[in-house]
């Protein structure tokens, strides 16, 4: 579903992302971990086609993001770090606009909006103006925006940041439900986070990035097999890299 090959992003002399490769199958939920400034957001922006890579290539659902950008983008749902919302629009109107620019066929738009509102728990606020919503609701509208066109690949940059514990739990179960094959086709989800407990709760697979390089890529079960916690692994990797630098 995602095939990233040697993705590199260079800003002048600074290597933000250094030769990151991985593949993800349908139905996988991958936790993207790493300290601040490790290159998580840049990698995600490259995968979604927002930024071009300096080097390397990536395919989303079989479409090369540089050569077939429109087809690749149709297959992606993306929640950036700051939810991309128009504060003056109401929730339903905003989601309807998103279905139009994401090429949802006219006949399916209404049901797509309704189902996204339903799944993200936005029923009570769907006529409210986005600017008047609380941070938790805005985050949910951001997720609704990412899933409204039923994409095969979901890329979520810190989906639970700024939410209270109950909201976090809701979002996590929503993410787990989205990954679940169930009736529809399974989706691939990549989410970045600082919260290690979050990874332990919903991500069977972990990719750890530090200083632009992929340092760990394995299943959560393998990582924690020897009794060490994810926190130990994270601290060890971050520290080792700190010494090397």
């Amino acid at each position: 579903m995602i095939e990233a090959e040697g993705i590199t992003k260079r800003y002048g002399d600074f290597l933000a992302v250094d030769d990151v490769s991985f593949t993800a199958q349908a139905g996988e939920v991958i936790g993207f971990l790493g300290p601040n400034g490790a290159g998580k957001t840049t990698t995600m922006r490259i995968l979604t086609g927002f930024l071009p890579a300096t080097d390397g290539s990536a395919r989303i659902a079989g479409h090369d993001i540089f050569n077939e950008p429109l087809a690749a983008r149709r297959a992606i749902g993306y929640l950036p770090e700051n939810p991309p919302l128009y504060p003056e629009m109401d929730v339903a109107g905003y989601l309807e606009f998103v279905t139009r620019i994401k090429d949802v066929p006219r006949a399916r738009r209404r049901s797509a909006v309704e189902s996204a509102i339903e799944r993200c728990g936005l029923k009570d606020v769907h006529r409210r103006v986005i600017g008047s919503l609380s941070k938790g609701f805005r985050q949910r509208v951001g997720i609704a925006q990412a899933i409204v066109h039923d994409p095969r690949v979901l890329i979520l940059d810190e989906p639970t940041v700024g939410l209270d514990p109950i909201q976090i739990r809701e979002i996590r179960s929503l993410i787990a439900a989205l990954a679940d094959p169930g009736k529809s086709e399974a989706r691939t989800i990549v989410l970045s986070t600082h919260i290690l407990a979050e990874v332990e709760a919903i991500c069977p697979r972990v990719i750890l990035i530090n200083q632009g390089r992929k340092v760990v890529d394995s299943s959560l079960a393998e990582l924690t097999a020897e009794g060490q916690s994810l926190e130990d692994v994270f601290a060890r990797v971050a520290l080792r890299a700190g010494e090397a630098a």
Binding site: G49, R73, Y78, L85, P87
Partner: peptide, 14 residues
């Protein structure tokens, strides 16, 4: 300022 640039530029728009 809204951050919606990221929505537009990752949508299948030219």
């Amino acid at each position: 300022t809204n951050g919606t640039q990221e929505l537009l530029m990752t949508s299948p728009l030219t």
